[in-house]
């Protein structure tokens, strides 16, 4: 009687243990699923960052004259029939990304000091003697505005849609100067 009673307890223990284990598996499986979703979300983010970096690197090596002007540009940057930098929709792996460029001329204004060649106080200007140079602040900065603008702000945005509908994006900013004579 005592032996059979102990066997019965052992079976109940195993059933109970299996039940506990089954219940324990639910949150663990949930955590695993959450982790996998998070990894996929991260992976899309890394892909977007790498795509933005690659596109902006290509744009930075273009001549200033080849850069388009405007906001929310999704048309490819071309030179004749040749596509220099593809913009717009791009598929990487199984995900679709949108590449959008905003390229606009911005004003520049450079402060400067000039050497007064006509200064005689305390000593007259001598080209080979920096101690004789008298620096004066320019009355107004050198302004590059309107048609003289030579600096372009480039903002590249890569956007994508998560499977649950949320639209995410990354955005990089830089400048490109017109250094032509």
């Amino acid at each position: 009687m005592a032996r059979s009673c102990r066997r019965g307890i052992s079976l109940i223990e195993i059933m109970l243990a299996t039940l506990i284990m089954a219940f324990a598996m639910f949150p663990i499986a949930g955590m695993m699923g959450y982790g996998i979703k998070g990894n996929q979300k991260d992976f899309r983010g890394i892909q977007a960052i790498q795509l933005a970096e690659a596109k902006l690197n290509k744009i930075m090596v273009l001549d200033f004259a080849q850069l388009p002007d405007g906001s929310e540009i999704t048309a490819d940057i071309t030179s004749g029939p040749q596509v220099l930098v593809p913009l717009g929709s791009e598929t990487v792996g199984q995900d679709i990304f949108g590449v959008v460029l905003t390229s606009e001329l911005v004003n520049s204004a450079f402060d400067y000091y000039y050497v007064d060649l006509n200064n005689t106080n305390p000593t007259p200007y001598v080209a080979t003697q920096p101690s004789s140079w008298f620096f004066r602040a320019a009355g107004a900065p050198l302004s590059l505005t309107g048609t003289d603008r030579r600096l372009r702000r480039l903002r590249l945005r890569v956007e994508w849609r998560e499977p649950w509908g949320v639209v995410r994006n990354v955005e990089l900013t830089t400048y490109k100067a017109d250094l032509r004579d």
Partner: peptide, 24 residues
Amino acid sequence: FFAQGILQAAMLKFKKMPSEFYYA
């Protein structure tokens, strides 16, 4: 990228005002 952009602005300033840089 931003540092590259500032490099461009610095080159533009030098391009426009080289003698001021040499004096300074």
